[in-house]
């Protein structure tokens, strides 16, 4: 089985900010087959369509997944009102996830806002070999900093207004890290303009780079062709799909 559909229980809920929530979901059979960078496709009560939410952390021993999401609209608002003990209907794990490079020595993880959670899953794997550069609007929007630190991942927080960490965009810090040298892998998730800039920096420095994309989805498993994104290979450009061919793409192969 690549993915399952089922009803699972929320066993932990934390408000990380005013609009950002963390759930731990008890789903041993799903956790067992999940990888960092994959997502879960959740049906909010009273809604017709599911909402794709990236997996933040996987606990293979406890058989749980952690997801962190932001209230964006009615569906995520509905989800945020769920509590410990409530059921959650999901198809999971969906998508391809990040390829893990055991030989990589210095990895930079770049998270933009609510693109930060899937980077924590990689921090769990790469630990002190990773540097996380995470950007947020302001101090109140900063999430997961301590989680990265507890993995001994070098953690750089940037805010747009300078109210916390470094004032400025993640790309400035990424450039500085690349200039230090030895970076052999960049993984990123966040708004498209950020991913575009990160890809450009990776290319300039000739560093392997993977980006995780977001798109409005239907089925979540690759049948409905709704979540299209343009990719390119030796045969030219074509439409791929974020849910099945992604959400993680090699930056060289995706047209942002």
């Amino acid at each position: 089985m690549k993915y399952l559909q089922g009803i699972y229980k929320i066993i932990e809920k934390t408000a990380l900010s005013e609009t950002c929530f963390s759930f731990v979901i008890d789903c041993p059979e799903v956790a067992k087959i999940s990888k960092a960078g994959q997502f879960v496709h959740i049906l909010p009560k009273g809604k017709f369509l599911r909402r794709p939410i990236s997996i933040c952390q996987i606990d293979y021993e406890k058989g749980t997944l952690r997801i962190v999401f932001e209230i964006r609209g009615e569906g995520t608002q509905e989800l945020s009102e769920l509590n410990i003990g409530d059921d959650i209907d999901m198809i999971a794990p969906c998508g391809n996830g990040f390829e893990i490079f055991d030989n990589a020595k210095k990895i930079v993880l770049v998270g933009g806002g609510i693109g930060t959670p899937p980077m924590l899953g990689l921090s769990d794997i790469y630990k002190e070999k990773a540097t996380a550069i995470c950007g947020f609007r302001n101090k109140d929007a900063v999430i997961l900093e301590n989680d990265f630190l507890s993995n001994n991942t070098n953690t750089i927080i940037c805010t747009d207004d300078g109210s916390y960490g470094i004032k400025g965009f993640v790309t400035d810090s990424l450039k500085a890290e690349c200039e230090k040298g030895d970076v052999d892998l960049i993984c990123a998730c966040g708004p498209t303009p950020m991913l575009k800039a990160v890809s450009a920096i990776a290319q300039e420095n000739n560093i392997e780079c993977f980006v995780s994309l977001e798109e409005r989805m239907g089925c979540g498993i690759g049948a409905c062709l709704v979540c299209a994104c343009k990719t390119k290979d030796e045969n030219g450009e074509k439409m791929s799909h974020v849910c099945k061919n992604g959400p993680v793409f090699n930056a060289k192969e995706v047209v942002l």
Binding site: K47, F48, L49, E74, G75, E215, R216, M217, G218, C224, L225, V226, C227, A228, C229
Partner: peptide, 8 residues
């Protein structure tokens, strides 16, 4: 061109 889906 996406978005190609919307909830109603």
């Amino acid at each position: 061109i996406p978005p190609r889906i919307a909830e109603t």
